[in-house]
Amino acid sequence: MNRIVEKLNENKKIVSIYFTAGFPELNDTVTIIKELERSGVDLIEIGLPFSDPLADGPTIQKSSTKALQNGMTTQLLFDQLANIRDHVSIPLIIMGYFNPVLQYGVEKFCAKCKEIGIDGLILPDLPLAEYQEHYQSTFEKYGLINTFLITPQTSPQRIEEIDQASNGFIYMVSSASTTGAKQGFGDEQKNYFDRIASMQLKNPQIVGFGISNNQTYQAATQQAKGAIIGSAFIKHLENHGTSNISNFVNSIR
């Protein structure tokens, strides 16, 4: 069974952490992953940096630029991760934009993920229809779970469609924003969380965007299965490097 599905079947709320590979230092990737697992994180999203991250706010943009300046490439990331399964057992997802995957070759990319022990992908700018028409069979061939996003503006009909097409979890974007933009949740988010919970979707939902501390984590996971922290963790890395990662994680849960 895919590690993501196994994790989702556990009777607990999930903390998922995103970080940009190659940031703050080029070779921090494995250290960060090991530290996150040791700190009790449930799921890790390894960000493949891209020059033009459209859905990201300034924090993740800057970390991506820095990672690329440090020399991160798709191949280097795969090389860094080559023996990662000797060290950690929690689910690992690669998150990034579609163009670097397309240039590496979609099938080659998926094969490499399987070889390393990557469990899934999140590619926000690969739309559902394109995925289903051209890439789904390849993802499935290599046992990769693809995760789609929904937002407060996504229509109920499209949410149903995305639910049908998903076989892991749904990435529930908390508000209409780029990453790291909003602080705290208002009535609008609470209504949205209620509305999605009442849809009784077959896939659990994990909330992302705007989770930065225990308060927002608690609010997001009242109904959803878990929450994703990205920009807040990047800021932690920016200020503290790879030390004290467990302090950060403990402050969330």
């Binding site: 459209l54 859905a55 579609f98 926000p124 700018d125 690969l126 739309p127 394109e130 789609f148 996003l149 929904i150 937002t151 503006q153 996504t154 229509s155 499209r158 974007v173 209409a176 924003s177």
Partner: peptide, 11 residues
């Protein structure tokens, strides 16, 4: 061509 956009822009 096509529309390779994040879900946030889909609507």
């Amino acid at each position: 061509g096509g529309a390779y956009i994040p879900e946030m822009l889909y609507p």
